[in-house]
């Protein structure tokens, strides 16, 4: 148990540190790598909590998401090629102000919100219990929505692909 807490704590530290480093590097590939490392550490924390499915899905989806982000970089960035230095931060004063205000609000919230007392441990599969708690009666809506989204994606691609 102590070892698990230590490992999860270390992974949490990795997630925070790599998340911070994203804004210190000067190349989009390095920023992508550090952001991915941060997300993978979070996925590993979830696995450490016994949520094997959720943790694995986080690693899977975040890796794909980073790679799709690269597709957007190619589409939208002025220089998605070489290693020309770039900065990851803009509008320094404004972002400092926003960051400090949000941090203050969240920190206050942590101390003001009454935390739930630990109830009985979840029975059976924790992923199932979490999914039920999050979605509950909306499961059918979410499933329909997911299918509609997939159909939309396929339809959009089919329409967008020009046939010569």
């Amino acid at each position: 148990m102590t070892a698990l807490v230590a490992v999860v704590g270390a992974l949490g530290a990795v997630a925070v540190v790599t998340g911070l480093l994203v804004f210190t590097v000067n190349s989009m590939a390095r920023a992508t790598f550090l952001l991915l490392a941060s997300f993978v550490a979070v996925g590993a924390v979830l696995i450490g909590f016994g949520l094997g499915y959720l943790g694995t899905v986080v690693i899977l989806m975040m890796t794909i998401e980073m790679m799709i982000m690269v597709v957007f970089m190619v589409m939208l960035m002025m220089n998605p090629a070489g290693l020309m230095p770039m900065t990851m931060v803009h509008n320094r004063r404004g972002s400092w102000a926003i960051a400090l205000v949000v941090f203050g609000l969240l920190t206050t919230g942590v101390w003001l919100v009454p935390f739930p007392t630990p109830g009985p441990a979840a029975v059976g599969d924790p992923t199932l219990a979490l999914g039920d708690a999050l979605m509950g009666g909306q499961m059918l809506t979410m499933m329909t929505l997911g299918l509609a989204l997939l159909a939309t994606i396929v339809g959009t691609v089919a329409v967008a692909v020009s046939r010569r």
Binding site: L36, G52, Y53, I59, T63, M66
Partner: peptide
């Protein structure tokens, strides 16, 4: 959740080659 884990490890290859 081995099937999902397998899938997660193989997409790491995208990042690796990129």
């Amino acid at each position: 959740v081995g099937v999902v884990w397998f899938n997660a490890m193989e997409v790491v290859a995208w990042f690796a080659v990129w």
